[in-house]
Nucleic acid binder design. Structure first.
Length: 229
DNA sequence: CGCTTTTGACCTGCGC
DNA sequence: GCGCAGGTCAAAAGCG
């Protein structure tokens, strides 16, 4: 699945860019290199409150690799948001009714997780609706839909063809409800070179979390520009 | 009894 | 236009 996502592995530079280079099919928005200490409340922040997942967090006892974005986005803020860039986009990625067809790129996030279990507890309740053998992988791909009424979020789960120790999960769409017990929003990414990644804090809103995130990205960009002079 | 999983069929997009 | 591959539907079976 790594291949189908254009997914690089952990060997790729961490934190390659807050904003990927033009034409990049994916971006890493991941913790900086080094020993990263991550302490998150169990299942508190994964995909919760519309968008949230954390880099390197513990999720169902598994360790998450950096997230990957596969729709040719030019920045995280353009990914899965629309209009003024402040609202997440929900709903299925594509398809035209009975029988499917290929989804068009939409609000999609994929990431690898090293785990012995295929289905990680991300706080949401999922209902399996399909299973399919895919040519690019010896492992079957499972399709899940959020069980919440009116929530069209889907996810695909499969073992990484390159390394079966990893589970590749791809989310399509954004939840229009919070996961039971979820109380956290996305924190800003860690400062470049930071030794520790602060635990997420409760955020008043999606917009506030994005604002904080964006502000920090700008600070990083300014700092990077300054240091390269 | 209601919800979930399984599984084969069906539909659609894409490449050739 | 055709075949392939991926994604979804929906009926049947399983389970608590």
């Amino acid at each position: 699945m790594a291949a189908s996502l254009g997914l690089a592995h952990e060997a790729a530079p961490f934190y390659a860019a807050a904003y990927p280079p033009a034409g990049a099919a994916y971006a890493y928005l991941a913790p900086p290199p080094g020993d990263l200490v991550v302490e998150f409340p169990p299942r508190a922040a994964t995909m919760a409150d519309d968008c949230c997942y954390q880099f390197g967090q513990e999720m169902g006892g598994a360790y998450c690799s950096p997230p990957v974005f596969d729709n040719g986005m030019t920045s995280l803020l353009n990914y899965g948001v629309e209009g003024d860039g402040r609202r997440p986009v929900g709903g299925p990625a594509g398809g035209t009714g009975n029988g499917g067809g290929r989804p068009r790129p939409a609000s999609r996030i994929g990431f690898r997780t090293r785990s012995e279990v295929d289905v990680l507890d991300d706080g949401f309740k999922w209902r399996k609706y399909g299973k399919k053998a895919v040519k690019s992988s010896p492992n079957p791909r499972n399709y899940y839909r959020c069980s919440a009424e009116g929530c069209g979020v889907k996810k695909r789960v499969e073992r990484d063809s390159d390394d079966p120790r990893y589970v590749v999960t791809t989310y399509d769409g954004v939840h229009n409800h919070a996961a039971p017990g979820a109380a956290y929003l996305c924190p800003p990414p860690p400062p470049r070179g930071a030794a520790h990644y602060s635990p997420p804090v409760a955020a008043p809103s999606w917009s506030a979390a994005l604002d904080a995130w964006e502000a920090q990205l700008h600070r990083h960009a300014a700092a990077a520009a300054h240091s390269s002079e």
